[in-house]
Structure formats: structure tokens, C-alpha cells
């Protein structure tokens, strides 16, 4: 379980980072989305994975529940991630309108 998820996080992060280093804005935005998946999974998984644990209190033993703290952290992270994606998308659209291309540096061509 842990191994699978760790490798999965690694692959998500690697794909994201590769896209982050690409020159086109759309690639970067997709890259950031992938990285945020990886980071959310990472934060979520800290402290161990629980399958079949109860997420909602029902009067039982404290130890049987899923850890609520990373869940609360990740929940807001997901929403904020959406907001930043939207902001970045609009910034890239504006930059595309102003510079006439979709290069992250605002100018085409190799440095």
C-alpha cells in the first residue's frame, strides 16, 4: 500500500516537475496541477494510511478513526489549489494577450 502510493506520488511529482520546466504556459499549468495532486497525497499520507477506518465519530474507540488533521489540511489545500490554478490561468491568458505568445518568459526563442 505505502510503497504503491509512494511511487505514485513520485511519478505525479516527476511529471509535474518536468512540465514545470517546459516553456509553454499551458504545460506549466498542467504541471502545477499534477504537482498539487502529488503534494496533497503526500500531506494526506503523512502519519500513515488507514483503510476501512471510520471517518465520522460513532462513539467507538478513539484509535479506530482515520486521522482527521491531514484531511482538514488537504481539504482546504484542494480548494485553494483550484483558486491558484484559476489565477494562473487568467494571468497566462492576459500575458498571451499582451505579448502575443504563450511562452512563460513572454518572448519566443531560445535564450
Amino acid at each position: 500500500m505505502e510503497l504503491v502510493l509512494a511511487i505514485a506520488i513520485g511519478i505525479l511529482a516527476a511529471s509535474g516537475v518536468w512540465l514545470l520546466l517546459r516553456p509553454r504556459t499551458f504545460q506549466v499549468i498542467i504541471g502545477l496541477t499534477l504537482i498539487s495532486y502529488a503534494v496533497n497525497m503526500f500531506i494526506f499520507s503523512i502519519g500513515g494510511l488507514r483503510t476501512g477506518a471510520d471517518p465520522v465519530l460513532n462513539g467507538g474507540d478513539i484509535a479506530q478513526y482515520a486521522d482527521p488533521l491531514p484531511q482538514a489540511l488537504v481539504l482546504t489545500a484542494i480548494v485553494i489549489g483550484f483558486a491558484t490554478t484559476a489565477l494562473f490561468l487568467v494571468v497566462l491568458l492576459t500575458s498571451r494577450g499582451l505579448t502575443g505568445n504563450d511562452h512563460v518568459d513572454g518572448e519566443d526563442g531560445t535564450p
Binding site: A13, A14, V17, L21
Partner: peptide, 22 residues
């Protein structure tokens, strides 16, 4: 170069995540 960097980052993140989980 970027593929190489990405693989390095991915490997690092994966081992960190694994260590944190276990």
C-alpha cells in the same frame, strides 16, 4: 536535462513519502 531532473525529484519525493508513511 529536465527529464533527468524530474526523475531525480520524483525519486526523492517518493522516498520521502515512503519514509513519512512508514
Amino acid at each position: 536535462r529536465d527529464v533527468f531532473i524530474a526523475i531525480a525529484v520524483g525519486a526523492g519525493v517518493a522516498s520521502l513519502a515512503y519514509a513519512a508513511m512508514t
